[in-house]
Design a protein around this nucleic acid. Structure first.
Lengths: 216, 216
DNA sequence: ATTTTGTATACTGTATACAATATGGAGTCG
DNA sequence: CGACTCCATATTGTATACAGTATACAAAAT
């Protein structure tokens, strides 16, 4: 017997709204009109609100009683929290993962090559960077941990997208990815974890001065 | 002008439902009847569902489309994920905290004394243990990190409560708390973080054999 | 006796309705 | 001209209504 998994609307609605947040269509600090957005998406306010509350718990949105939902602001203080949590948990996930198979290594190299190729196109580069990190942990058996890191990576992505859009600069980490793979190849798990941390830390070091300057 | 912060119902409802989950009134695996529970609490299904969805995202509940919400099961696999995440993030929070003031140290010692006094009464002991950990991080400026650790501590508490209720045993960590404080007093932050990890690891080591035996 | 099928009921997921508060603008006063 | 008050409107938070699916039970068939 096959099980047909019906999906609740809130899941698809969440995807759509998160996508708009990540793309900056709903800009940091921007408010959300529930009725309008519900009509736009084509559902009622009920599943929309369910999705919005989920995104609030995940940190993409804020809400004030009676005033509704806003996209969370991008601040230096928040980034200084977010990134260490992210590299710590991704490090934990990497430490809990089996050594990558040859097939996985090849996949990671291929993605990294794509990343190098598209490093001029910010949105594309972010896609491949994200894909590389997800693939690195694809064999990690800890589902809950993976879910947490994925949410955090989406949040980091929002910062990086905004930075790139605003400054026109792109920071690319193909070299760091190579080093992480090399460390894993030599079974130097600890070093790989440290390099992964460095990878994120470099991004944060770009972001912080920008965040401190841009927002008074 | 003062701002009076109205609270949405979902917040209070969440508190009530979480309390029932933590106390085991809604047992692991136990299903939730929305209409019934809504009437019982005295609100409509709307804010109740908002609270339930939040508790699902936090990991206390599961849901299946069309079948509603269940309290998450307690499993060895889940505990093996939960505890490392918890000690890692609490360690990060401790590392980000200023050294405890004399007043704070006194407070921690007082709580630890209460813990020792009530170590025979599981529910009470868990309350004080939780309070001690929260107080340890009370000065940590990273709000988001604190919010995450608090959710995780509530989940650990559900495991520990179930263990104590089932086995009649209580594992008490007053001595470990003292050691952590001593390390902090000597400004040995790293050692304090390691001891904090050990503290949680001891609990996990009690839980795992029990979880593996109890659930086939 | 046990399995299968049909049907009534219960419950979830979503839409809509309603009440209360926040927002914005016109008019008024300083 | 700017600040303030009052009112109309918009929008949120909550309750209720509705549709469709899952569950439980009874009757029929093997």
């Amino acid at each position: 017997m096959i099980t047909i998994a019906r999906a609740p609307l809130r899941r698809e609605v969440r995807r759509i709204v998160l996508d708009r947040i990540l793309r900056g269509e709903i800009p940091p600090g921007g408010g959300i009109n529930e009725s309008e957005l519900a009509i736009d998406i084509g559902v009622s306010r009920t599943p929309l609100r369910e999705a919005l509350l989920g995104l609030e718990r995940e940190g993409f949105l804020r809400s004030e009683t009676g005033r509704g939902f806003f996209a969370a602001a991008l601040t230096a203080e928040d980034a200084e929290e977010l990134y260490p949590i992210l590299w710590t948990l991704e490090g934990l996930a990497l430490a809990s993962s089996p050594s990558p198979t040859p097939a996985r290594k090849a996949e990671l190299e291929r993605i990294n090559a794509d990343l190098a190729r598209y490093e001029r196109i910010p949105e594309r580069a972010l896609d491949f960077d994200r894909l590389w990190h997800d693939t690195l942990l694809a064999a990690c058996p800890k589902r809950r941990l993976l879910a947490m890191t994925e949410v955090l990576k989406d949040q980091a992505r929002r910062y990086e997208r905004a930075y790139m859009a605003d400054s026109g600069r792109v920071f690319v980490s193909t070299r760091q990815h190579e080093e992480i793979l090399e460390a894993l190849e030599k079974d130097e798990r600890e070093r790989a974890v440290r390099l992964l941390e460095t990878n994120w830390r470099v991004s944060l070091d770009f972001l912080l001065p920008w965040l401190r300057k841009a927002r008074p």
